[in-house]
């Protein structure tokens, strides 16, 4: 009797425990299913974007063929479209932006992690992160109203005069000074990608073990040598990640570029000349594009940008893998 009355509550407790375990198993399964569905959703969206871009661009790609990639002319009147000028503009502006932003970004990161007096560290760090929070349209407006007139009246005439008659450079910096053009948008892009590169580089610099740096200082290395030989080699994968993130933003940036690039479907040797990028062309022309071939050509531009971004990210991954393999071996 006493045994039975003892057993009763314990079996009830066991049942309750069982029920709880079952409930946990169920919520766990549900949770696993949800997370898996979210992960699959990303693949579905990516696949859907790729398929719809391809379907939308089929008409243009089939009627122009490979010459779509190599033709500079973009003529809505005769419906002859070529993507060379936007591709050129996209690559050149992004490349110049990265060339400018990477050294400055690494410089800021080195200063913040190695040299900066403590009280200054936070304000500068926060300022850099605030720079990333500014909407791109603000950069565009600032670029058009403040930066472009400044370039046009102060910087460009000076550079044109300095390089006048110097072979190569004179055509690279040929006038007239419009103020807006390839170089202007590259400079704006450099400012826009700078915070991405800086904050990631700063974060990875913080991961360098103090013992490594201290040993280097201990054997008499200068700050430059420590940065060059210890910090940067130790963190190059992270730096690469920051650069790729910045490059991705530079390639796809639309509004700020549209404001300051000049939107001309031409390839000129001069960096001061107006040009266009893929995203700027789409933003400018999609609303009024009538005619299926015109719309399809714009979608093709989107597909090309998609492919370029994909290739660059793939190349970055590949490089990181090779570095990983080498350091791992």
């Amino acid at each position: 009797m006493t045994i039975a009355s003892d057993a009763m509550p314990s079996s009830a407790a066991a049942r309750a425990r069982e029920a709880t375990v079952r409930r946990f198993a169920l919520t766990d399964a549900l949770f696993r299913g949800l997370t898996r569905a979210s992960a699959i959703l990303v693949l579905v969206i990516l696949g859907g974007v790729a398929i719809s871009l391809f379907a939308g661009s089929w008409q243009a790609l089939s009627s122009f063929g490979f010459s779509f990639l190599t033709t500079e002319s973009w003529n809505p009147v005769t419906e002859k479209f070529g993507a060379l000028a936007p591709i050129y503009g996209t690559l050149v502006t992004a490349a110049i932006a990265i060339l400018i932003a990477v050294p400055i970004g690494i410089g800021i990161a080195v200063f913040l992690t190695e040299l900066c007096p403590r009280p200054l560290r936070r304000p500068i760090g926060i300022a850099v992160e605030l720079l990333a929070g500014i909407p791109s349209i603000i950069y565009g407006i600032w670029g058009l109203f403040v930066f472009a007139p400044f370039l046009q009246t102060a910087i460009q005439p000076f550079i044109i005069n300095v390089f006048h008659g110097v072979p190569g450079l004179s055509s690279l910096f040929a006038g007239p000074p419009y103020g807006i053009g390839l170089l202007t948008s590259a400079l704006i892009l450099a400012i826009m990608v700078l915070p991405f590169i800086t904050s990631i580089t700063k974060d990875v610099f913080d991961t360098v073990p103090a013992v490594l740096k201290e040993s280097a200082y201990g054997i008499g290395c200068t700050t430059w040598e420590v940065t060059r030989r210890v910090v940067i080699p130790y963190t190059r994968i992270g730096i690469m990640g920051g650069v790729m993130l910045g490059l991705g933003r530079a390639l796809g940036e639309t509004m700020a570029v549209t404001f300051v690039i000049g939107n001309a479907h031409r390839i000129s040797a001069s960096l001061f000349a107006p040009g266009t990028t893929i995203s700027a062309t789409i933003a400018n022309e999609f609303t009024e594009a009538d005619g299926d071939l015109y719309t399809s050509s714009l979608v093709s531009l989107g597909l090309i940008l998609f492919v370029i971004t994909f290739l660059i990210l793939a190349a970055a991954r590949y490089m990181l893998m090779r570095i990983d393999a080498r350091t791992g071996a």
Binding site: S73, P76, V77, G181, A264, P274
Partner: peptide, 17 residues
């Protein structure tokens, strides 16, 4: 050389939205 349309291939100049 250029033609008539809502968007054309401009021989010179800068474009603004």
């Amino acid at each position: 050389k250029v033609g008539v349309d809502k968007a054309v291939e401009w021989p010179v100049g800068i474009g603004a939205k």
